[in-house]
């Protein structure tokens, strides 16, 4: 009895505190208080979509498009790598993109990685080897910030998983640059701050990264694909999806196998269960 009485008193007390000191003032404020301020930039944000027709790896049956991954790697190397590292990916991983051992060796050697002089022990550089990881374009975060107007270019290894719907986000971001509607901007008093760039698919529409893909044909694809901006954006988004989750396709394929087995096993378990219970649990009535 004491527990129930105590419970009722405690319950009424906590509810009274909540209602009188939190709920009612909040409701009053919501009804009569000033409307919450909206950043003018929110008026320009548009949710970005992926490339038309989606990616080859979308969906439970998706597969890598090796040619696209190779093109995306080329875009990363020729465009993104100037500012962005890819520190969790090693050159040896490129073998997964359909390159041979010799091609991986040669590709690794085209990169310069930090090394140590074997005779003097001093810091130096050397050509990359397959076991090396992609080098960072800056020696440290301070140097990266100093070279980029105080905004450190993030590592791209996991970018496709570090944003909601990351593959499509990367594509949308790279194709989302432009100018805000001037009339609308004037009306809400919006101006892109100096040193930032307008991008309608970036959460606050002011991004520190200058448009990386600015003209068609910025890279020349070896396979003859026309390097339009949407094409390059889709290719590099696909490549960064691979860097974020190299086991993506293996995972889905294993999944089908496991699911098939489990469905079979569960069906047997169900039959066995029904068999055991037959005769013990007749229907009601």
């Amino acid at each position: 009895m004491t527990i129930r009485l105590g419970g009722i008193i405690a319950g009424l007390a906590i509810t009274a505190v909540l209602v009188l000191w939190s709920l009612l003032p909040g409701a009053y404020n919501l009804a009569f208080g000033p409307a919450p301020e909206q950043q003018p930039s929110y008026a320009f944000y548009e949710h970005g979509e992926g490339p038309e027709g989606g990616f080859s790896f979308d969906g439970p049956l998706g597969k890598w498009d090796m040619a696209q991954l190779q093109r995306g790697y080329q875009v990363y190397k020729e465009v993104c790598a100037a500012c962005h590292s890819l520190k969790f990916v090693a050159f040896r991983n490129l073998k997964q993109l359909g390159y041979t051992d010799a091609e991986v060796d040669a590709e690794a050697a085209t990169w310069t990685v930090p090394g140590i002089d074997p005779n003097t022990g001093e810091a130096t550089t050397r050509p990359g080897e397959p076991t090396d990881y992609f080098p960072s374009p800056y020696p440290n975060a301070i140097a990266a910030a100093a070279a980029n107007n105080n905004a450190v270019p993030p590592d791209l290894s996991l970018m496709a998983k570090a944003r909601h719907d990351g593959s499509n986000y990367i594509y949308a971001l790279l194709t989302g640059y432009g100018e805000p509607d001037p009339e609308k901007a004037k009306k809400v008093g919006f101006e892109t701050p100096t040193g930032l760039y307008f991008n309608k698919h970036f959460p606050n529409v002011n991004i520190a990264m200058p448009p990386p893909l600015s003209i068609d044909g910025q890279v020349t694809y070896a396979d003859g694909t026309k390097a339009t901006i949407p094409q390059m954006a889709a290719d590099v988004a696909a490549f960064l999806t691979w860097t974020a989750e190299p086991s993506l396709i293996e995972r889905k394929q294993t999944g089908w196998f496991v699911l098939g087995f489990l469905l079979f096993a569960t069906a047997l378990a169900f039959l066995s269960y029904k068999q055991i219970w037959a005769g013990v649990k007749p229907r009601k009535g």
Partner: peptide, 11 residues
Amino acid sequence: ATAYYFLHFLV
């Protein structure tokens, strides 16, 4: 909802 939660169990 919080108010209901406490009222439900305690009252």
